[in-house]
Simulated assay, not measured.
Amino acid sequence: MTVHGSVAPGFEPVRDAFADVLADARGGGSFAVVRDDTAVVDLWGGLADPASAAPWRDDTLCVLFSGTKGVVATVVAALDVLDPDASVRDLWPEFTADATIGHVLSHTAGLPYVDSPHDMLDNAACAALLSAQRPLWTPGSRVGYHALTHGHLVAELLRRATGRSIGTLVREVLAEPFGLELHLGTPECLDERMARLLRAPGYTISTFLDDPERRKIVERMYAGLLDSDERMNSAAYRRAELAAGSGTGTARSMARLYDLLARGHVVAPDALARATRTWSEGFDAINDRPLRFGLGYELEDPIGTYGPASRSAGAFGHSGAGGGRHGAWPQTGLGFSFVTNELRSENADGRADRLLDALDASL
C-alpha cells in the first residue's frame, strides 16, 4: 500500500517503518510526531474501509478506544477541579465505596465492571449503578484496569464539579482552543470521514491472562463492544460521550496534544507533574499485565509500551484497544500518535513498537 504524507529530513527511518506496517495491513492507519509545534512525521495510508476499498485520507477520523482516556486525563488536569486526595463522596454523596478521587483516576477503586444489567452507552445510568456497587477489593489496595467504568466514574465526577458533560469539556477545554480534531460525542456531519473498524483474525483481548475465572470477568467488562463489529462501528457508540473509549480523532491532533503538554501548554506545570507521577503500579488484579498509572494517564512500564527506555523515561499518554498508541516523550520534547482501524491482539502486534523504535533511531 502507498505511504502518503511527509517526514522531516532525518526521519526517513520512520517512513520506512510505516511502509512495513502498511505492507502487512488489512486496514489502514496514520502516524504523526510533533516536536516544538512542528510536524516532523505526518504519514497515512491503507484502507479506511476494507469492505469498500475506501482509502485512508489525511483527514480520516478513527475511534481512539482507550486513547480517549489520555484526552480526558488532560481535561481533568487542565481544569484542576478534582482533588485526588478528596473522598469521592465529597462530590458524589450517593457513592457508597470508601474511595478517593485519586483511586478512581488511577484504576484502584475496585469497580472494573458494572455488576447489574446496563447499557454501556448510558453514562448516567452506569454511574448510578456503580455508586451503589460493592468494590471487588478495598479501594487503593490493588490496581486493576477499569476499561469502561473509568469513564463512567470520571465523567460523573466532572459533571458534578463543573455542571458540564465530558463531551462538552473536551470541546471547550481542548478541541476549540487549540484547534484539535478531537471529538467525544462525534457529530453526524463527520460520519463520512470515519474509518471502519475491523478485528484481525484471531483477535482477542487480555492476552496476558490465562486464568479462566478471571477471563470471565474480562469478557464481562468488554461484552458488547470489542466482541461486536456492529457496536464498535455504530453511530450510537460514536455519539456516546464515553470518557473511557468512544473518542474519535486523527493522529495529527493527538500528537499535537501531547507535544503541547510536553512543552508546558494546556495544563499548568504543577498540575501536570501531579497527574504524571506514579499513583498506582503493579500487576493488574484481573489481567496479569504490568500497569503504571498517573491520574488517568498511562506511564512508561516494564514492557516498553512507550518505546525504548532511553526515550520513554517520564513518558505518559494512553494506548488504545487493538494497537493505538499516543503519548509524550517529555525529555525529547515531542508528542506522537499511531491510529489504526485494524485491531490486533497485544501479544501479536508490534506495529507501534516498530514505529517508536524507528522514531528513536531518527532522533
Rank of each mutant, 00 (worst) to 15 (best):
G264N: 12
R26Q: 09
D59C: 01
E188R: 15
S30F: 08
I217P: 01
A78T: 04
N287C: 15
V3K: 09
R171I: 00
L356H: 02
R215C: 01
P302H: 07
T162S: 10
V7W: 06
A97Y: 06
T278F: 12
G28V: 04
R220S: 14
E213A: 12
T186A: 03
P112H: 01
L334H: 02
R231T: 15
R15W: 12
T168A: 13
H183T: 07
G304V: 10
V81E: 11
T100Q: 07
P55I: 08
W279P: 04
P50Q: 00
E156F: 03
L359P: 13
D59E: 08
A358C: 12
L47I: 08
P55Y: 08
R238N: 04
A244K: 02
T305R: 07
V41N: 01
H265G: 14
W44V: 11
D119M: 10
T138G: 08
L261E: 00
P212A: 04
A235Q: 11
A23D: 13
G224A: 09
L242K: 04
S362Y: 03
R239G: 09
S131D: 07
G224P: 09
V40H: 06
P302W: 10
A51T: 15
A51S: 15
T138I: 12
D83E: 08
T96N: 01
W56V: 11
T108W: 00
A17W: 11
P302V: 11
A175H: 05
F283L: 14
V3R: 10
Y203E: 06
G70Y: 01
L343P: 03
V63H: 04
T168F: 01
P112S: 06
G314W: 08
D80Q: 05
N233F: 12
V154S: 07
S87Y: 07
V170G: 00
V41S: 05
T74E: 03
L148N: 06
A313D: 10
V104G: 05
Q331I: 10
R325H: 06
L157S: 09
L169H: 04
A223K: 12
D90F: 00
V173G: 07
G151H: 04
A244V: 08
L79F: 08
L47A: 11
E219W: 10
M232W: 12
V63A: 12
F208C: 00
A195D: 03
A321W: 12
R263W: 08
D37L: 11
V266M: 09
Y258R: 00
A128N: 09
W279S: 05
A39C: 13
D42E: 13
M194A: 03
G327F: 06
R159W: 03
F31N: 03
T340A: 02
A125S: 11
A195R: 01
F283H: 09
I286M: 02
D284W: 01
L299E: 01
P290H: 05
S228G: 06
W56P: 11
D119P: 12
S228C: 04
G144N: 05
A23G: 15
T2D: 14
R274L: 13
L272H: 06
R252Y: 05
S246G: 13
L129V: 03
P290T: 05
R289F: 08
F31W: 04
A8K: 02
R199I: 01
M221A: 07
L111N: 00
F95D: 05
H118R: 10
G202R: 09
